Simulated assay, not measured.
Amino acid sequence: MKLKHLIICLLACLPLIAPAQLDTVIYMKLNKQPTSKEKAFYCITLLKKSNKKFVVTRFQKHYNANWSQTGYSKIKVLSDSVLKVKKYQQNKLQLKFKRNFSIVNDSIYYFKEIDKQDRLWREGYTKSKFPLHLVREMKTYYESGQLESIQKYKNNRCIASESWHEDGTRRFKNQYADLDSLPEFPGGQEALFKFIGENIRYPHEAKTKRIRGKVFLQFIITDKGKVSNVKVIKSAHPLLDKEAQRVVSLMPDWKPGKFMGEYVNMRYQVPINFRLSAFW
């Protein structure tokens, strides 16, 4: 099975600050399967605050082996079948909802996540109440009630997905699938930014007019490792956009990403920052 157009975003590298006295630490590969700390790409920690209060925190490892916190959830156990969940990102509350469970069989629960306005946010199947261990499928919804995505899961790994914009038009298929490996620039992430720095040429007109900014580019790394379909997704200025596109188009072949053991086409995003010194 070959998947197309998966979206990969670069994240800022921040240090990992792990809480003390953890009750559970789960290390996972990129494809969400269990692994050792040394080989992990993701980490989930569970901290017990009391008999009914817990904190689940998620981390991600970056190319330089640093970890960053991607978010955390505060969980309060209201009953055997109901949890109260508050989800945070960058220490800001993003969502509040109740997670209701019903038993499907000896090993699987069906769950629904509903906010204070009685709006359904997610529903699906899991082997554990927290952190979730997803199986079968999960559906997510917009605040309007419009279906946002349907994701198929096998042993906590998303193996296929469909998603829609709020107006009902389709997004890229398999946007949320869990990969075996990401595309890799020759020499890794550090070599990628070194290549950009060595090959960028600040447009003379942009210099004289003191034009600066950050250009965000999106492109496809094909299953053969070729860079294609380079486009600007966030512009800084036409002069800077054109130069950023030129540099990305010069890149050598990458090591393509893999999904389910096969090389696949993947979408990739990279920022290029144009900055002027104080002497210009």
Score class of each variant (00 low, 15 high):
131 P>Q: 06
131 P>A: 12
132 L>G: 00
133 H>R: 10
133 H>L: 10
134 L>R: 02
135 V>H: 00
135 V>Y: 00
136 R>H: 09
136 R>W: 09
137 E>K: 13
137 E>Q: 11
137 E>T: 10
138 M>P: 01
138 M>E: 13
139 K>W: 06
139 K>L: 11
139 K>I: 05
140 T>F: 01
141 Y>R: 07
141 Y>N: 05
143 E>V: 09
144 S>N: 06
144 S>K: 08
145 G>T: 12
146 Q>W: 02
147 L>V: 09
148 E>D: 13
148 E>P: 00
148 E>M: 12
149 S>H: 04
149 S>I: 04
150 I>K: 05
150 I>M: 05
150 I>F: 02
150 I>S: 01
151 Q>T: 15
151 Q>G: 01
153 Y>K: 01
153 Y>A: 01
154 K>S: 08
155 N>E: 14
156 N>V: 04
156 N>C: 08
158 C>E: 05
158 C>W: 08
159 I>N: 02
159 I>T: 14
162 E>Q: 08
162 E>P: 00
162 E>V: 08
162 E>C: 02
163 S>P: 00
164 W>S: 08
168 G>R: 10
169 T>N: 14
169 T>A: 14
169 T>R: 13
170 R>S: 04
171 R>D: 14
171 R>W: 11
171 R>T: 15
171 R>H: 14
171 R>Y: 12
172 F>D: 14
172 F>W: 14
173 K>P: 00
173 K>N: 13
173 K>S: 15
173 K>A: 15
173 K>Y: 10
177 A>W: 03
177 A>M: 11
178 D>Q: 03
180 D>I: 08
180 D>K: 05
180 D>N: 09
181 S>D: 11
181 S>G: 13
182 L>G: 01
182 L>E: 11
183 P>T: 09
185 F>Y: 10
186 P>M: 11
186 P>G: 11
186 P>D: 14
187 G>I: 12
187 G>W: 14
188 G>N: 08
188 G>Q: 10
188 G>Y: 08
188 G>A: 12
189 Q>F: 12
190 E>W: 00
190 E>D: 04
190 E>F: 02
190 E>M: 04
190 E>P: 00
191 A>W: 03
192 L>Q: 12
192 L>C: 11
193 F>E: 08
193 F>G: 01
194 K>A: 13
194 K>I: 05
195 F>M: 02
195 F>D: 01
195 F>A: 03
195 F>R: 00
197 G>S: 07
197 G>I: 03
198 E>Y: 05
199 N>D: 12
199 N>L: 09
200 I>T: 07
201 R>K: 09
202 Y>Q: 02
202 Y>T: 00
203 P>T: 07
